Amino acid sequence: MTAPQAVRRVAVWADGDVRAVDPDEPVVTAFDQGLGRGDGVFESVLVTGGRTPRLEAHLARLHRSAQLTALTHPGDDAVRALVAAVVAGWPADVEGACRVFLTRGLGDGSPPTLLALLAAVPAETVRQRSTGIAVVTLSLGVPADFRATAPWLLGGAKTLSYAVNMAAQRHAHAAGADDVVFTSLEGRLLEGPTSTVVWAAGGRLHTPPPGTGILAGTTQARLFAHAEGDGWPTAVTPGTVEDLTAADAVWLLSGIRGAAPVTRLDGVPRGDAGLTQRVQELLTR
């Protein structure tokens, strides 16, 4: 098997051309707005079997994020070519995480920066799929419906401004947990720092409404589509932490990690009623 830690790739787009570069080669100026101000958007795409079977959903979300942040988008064909360049020859036996970054570049009407990074999926991410995660709930400090009427807060955009998200995960780690579920000021469920919340209750799969300003989950959308086709009803539900506590099962879903079952919530152990295998099987379709 190929050693995952030895495999890293970078590709850049400039002036309509795409090229793969050495992963240690500088590709972004220090004056790039994405670096200096976090002014950009991104997507993380799973590479499996040397391919990116879920790319189209991520292209659509990247477009939406660019629109919400008024970023110039070079077009889906440019992103497809960029991803193809960085994935070309990737070992089929190594799962990869391909991150596509689109920034405002130097600003003032200059071309955007578009690049892709590819590395092996971390072993800890793979572990969390199979053994589950401990989660704490943290308030995001905003009312559930506020971001829907405050476009300057960029609700629903997958931006590079992840400092708060990473700080929340560090807080969770310090508390002996793996991850976080954010709640609104009044206690409604929102999302994880890098994931979508899904729970099973009453014979249905549930997820919080996107009108709260959360990021629309590509993995959650795929799961719900396959679940409905498999006779498992789904619902968009304005839930609370109490709903997660009473649920048959809870998962955090993301494109790279897939469905990670929550095995402990705010310090209290919980099970999954044997439903995780079904969820993970649905996501392989």
Rank of each mutant, 00 (worst) to 15 (best):
T218I: 04
I256D: 02
S65H: 04
V45Q: 02
L283P: 07
F42P: 00
F224T: 14
L282W: 02
F31G: 15
D93C: 04
R80K: 10
A66T: 05
L68K: 11
A247S: 14
R278A: 12
S44Q: 02
A88V: 00
L138P: 11
G49P: 06
V268I: 14
I133Y: 01
L223F: 01
A20H: 05
L115D: 00
D77S: 13
R264P: 12
L138N: 10
E281S: 11
M1V: 00
F182I: 08
A81N: 05
V12A: 01
P269H: 14
G38P: 02
D76W: 04
L140Y: 15
P91S: 06
A70M: 11
R127H: 08
F146R: 12
L55P: 01
T245M: 13
G155R: 00
G217P: 07
A247C: 12
Q33I: 07
H226M: 09
P53C: 01
R204F: 08
G105Q: 06
T183R: 10
P233T: 08
L35M: 08
H206Q: 11
F101D: 01
P209S: 00
V268N: 08
L46N: 02
V164G: 03
T276G: 06
I133C: 07
R270Q: 15
H171Q: 15
D24L: 14
N165C: 03
G132D: 09
V47W: 00
P143R: 08
A260S: 13
P210E: 14
R147H: 10
T284H: 11
L118T: 01
R19N: 03
A3H: 05
G202S: 13
R54S: 01
T218K: 07
F31I: 15
K158W: 09
L35T: 03
D108M: 12
P193V: 05
L215H: 02
D32R: 05
L59R: 09
L55C: 00
L46E: 06
Q33T: 10
V83C: 06
W90I: 02
Q169Y: 01
A11I: 03
L153S: 09
P122C: 05
H73V: 11
R278G: 11
T125D: 05
P210L: 07
V198P: 03
T103E: 02
T2L: 04
A216N: 05
R278W: 09
A177I: 14
A174Q: 15
H226W: 09
A172Q: 10
Q277W: 11
W251N: 03
P26W: 12
G211C: 03
P4H: 03
R204K: 13
G132Y: 11
R99L: 00
A201H: 12
A57C: 01
A119P: 01
E25N: 02
G271F: 07
T131Y: 10
A57V: 00
D93K: 04
L140A: 15
H171P: 07
